[in-house]
Design a protein around this nucleic acid. Structure first.
Length: 513
RNA sequence: GGGCCGUUAACUCAGUUGGUAGAGUAUCUGACUUUUAAUCAGAGAGUCGCGUGUUCGAAUCACGCACGGCCCA
């Protein structure tokens, strides 16, 4: 162990790397910064204001040739991060990246800056944020470049960036230090740009159809609206337990009772479940409710909305997801729940209406069932294993069993089925819609059945929500509602295999140190 | 929860049968005013994820733990 290493300050953690570790590279950068500071150069000034965006410069002037740029003699003011630096004796080239995510080359010359300014420039590091002004020209190799009249340190960076050629690839570090991932990986930025575009497309789509965006409680006394385990928390001042919502559904329908006949909420839900390539404990969901409409009206609306997202983000309704083509062109296939089990799942007909047979098959397929579980639960599990992965092209599945749909309106034709669809793309459930149950007595009865299942040990069964039933007693207009998983939609449209690639800060265990 | 894989320099990765820890990039010093992963010469940089054990000796073998990835439930 060298003398230097011995003297370095011990960090409080016991073993393992500290987050705020120190190394030779950081010490060197800090030393250079200290030299600049000693010369009176501010390391973190907030005075520089860029005037131009690199993407605009490239778009507007990128087609001009050497001579044309020479005669025009256009000057620009940009600011961004030094992504690379090639230094010669009395000149240097660097690439600057700004918020547009694009880079522009800058040529810095000693005889242009002057001796003192050039000496200061030589103290800068890759990763520093700088402001640059000067005319645009083309180098001998024809690269669009700014000849720097001035280079100003805007923010000192004490930590070295990952190596330029391989960049940052360690998945764990990419998620933990997403800021580095975003600096180094252009494609990652593109994913989140696409995500933003999808969300704004949906908002615009719904606003155009007279939907109103609302925000309902994420902290709820009674976590309702979905079959899922909630996160529990506690309000100290009021001395009461609270749950993070698993869905906004029951609140949104209260608003429909209140006369907000077209509402939507696009925000986070929380489910206390495992983590996988398809699941993150907090995830984003669109829920919308439309009065005087049925589940059948929502299907074409869904097709249209997602088609618009695809056009906006991919530019086409046909695209590849993980190497297989998806065609989102409406109309999508529609298939009855039991028919899909028969035709796609290859399930024997005797299973479809016999609880014992169905539970048996489900268990064979690895399903875990509690004593209270019936035909519906069993078929749902069988569906998940045998049919869902096969639904690659967009498909609506309709006619779900009532048992697994406690908030849906019963079918007028079949008392055991509900007016509901789920839709699937790329072998994954993307959304769920139904005609809402607005008969308060029926709803109370369904809640009671859920409560019984909960008492029988089903932690995902729903709670009785008496106020929700009371709201229905005032009268909720006939309404259809739908939920769409936004993270999965983003995965689909950005061709990402894992939900963690479309969530900026996916849940991870804390880092030591 | 189970199985498999991974964790070595700032980054990307090698590391043989257990015998003093390696490369490329990055960094530092010197040269260099049109480079494109610039080039040339030299140098520094490591708690080999953490711990225990086996051993004369462990990055390497065994066991446990932590974190992550993929698959399964």
């Amino acid at each position: 162990m060298s003398e230097k290493t011995k003297n370095k300050p011990k960090t409080p953690d016991k073993g393992g790397k500290s987050i705020l570790d120190d190394n030779q590279l950081i010490r060197q950068r800090r030393a250079k910064a200290a030299e600049l500071a000693a010369q009176g150069v501010p390391l973190f000034p907030n005075t520089f204001r860029p005037r131009d965006l690199i993407s605009d410069i490239k778009k507007n002037y990128g087609h001009l040739d050497i001579e044309r740029l020479e005669t025009l003699n256009l000057s620009f003011v940009i600011a961004g991060r030094i992504m690379s630096l090639r230094s010669f004796g009395k000149a240097a080239f660097m690439h600057i990246m700004d918020r547009s995510g694009e880079q522009l080359q800058v040529h810095v010359q000693k005889n242009v800056l002057g001796d003192e300014a050039y000496a200061r420039f030589k103290k800068l590091d890759v990763g520093d944020l700088v402001g640059v002004s000067g005319p645009l020209f083309r180098t001998r190799t024809n690269e669009l470049t700014i000849r720097a009249n001035q280079v100003t340190l805007v923010t000192k960076s004490y930590r070295p960036l990952p190596e330029k050629f391989h960049g940052l690839t360690d998945v764990e570090q990419r998620y933990r230090q997403r800021y580095l991932d975003l600096i180094m990986n252009r494609e990652v930025r593109a994913i989140f740009e696409a995500r933003s575009k999808i969300v704004s497309t949906i908002r615009r789509f719904l606003h155009q159809r007279d939907f109103m965006e609302v925000e309902t409680p994420m902290m709820q006394h009674i976590p309702g609206g979905a079959m899922a385990r909630p996160f529990e928390t506690y309000h100290n001042a009021l001395g009461m337990p609270l749950y993070l919502r698993v869905a906004p559904e029951l609140y949104l329908k209260r608003l429909v009772v209140g006369g907000l006949e077209r509402v939507f909420e696009l925000n986070r839900n929380f489910r206390n479940e495992g983590v996988s390539v398809r699941h993150n404990p907090e995830f984003t969901m669109l829920e919308f409710y439309m009065s005087y409409a049925s589940y059948e009206d929502l299907m074409p609306l869904t097709e249209e909305m997602l088609a618009e997202c695809a056009k906006e983000v991919v530019g086409s309704l046909k695209f590849d997801y993980q190497g297989r083509e998806i065609d989102m062109s409406p109309p999508w296939r529609q298939l009855d729940f039991r028919t899909s089990l028969l035709e796609i799942g290859g399930v024997p007909p005797k299973v479809l209406f016999d609880a014992e047979e169905a539970l048996g098959l489900s268990r064979e397929l690895g399903g875990v069932h509690k004593p209270g579980d019936g035909l519906g639960k069993a078929l749902d599990k069988i569906f998940e294993v045998t049919v869902e992965p096969e639904l690659w092209q967009p498909t609506f599945i309709t006619g779900h069993p009532l048992e697994i749909s406690p908030l849906s309106r019963t079918s007028d034709h079949d008392p055991d089925a509900v007016e509901r669809f789920e839709f699937f793309i790329a072998g994954r459930e993307m959304g769920n819609g139904f005609s809402e149950l607005n008969d308060p007595d029926d709803q109370r009865q369904r809640f009671l059945e859920q409560v019984a299942q909960r008492e029988a040990g089903d932690e995902e069964a729903q709670f009785m929500d008496a106020d929700y039933v009371r709201a229905l007693e005032y009268g909720m207009p006939p309404t259809a509602g739908e939920g769409v998983g936004i993270d999965r939609l983003v995965m689909l449209l950005t061709d990402q295999p894992s939900i963690r690639e479309v969530i900026l800060f996916p849940l991870l265990r804390p880092e030591k140190g």
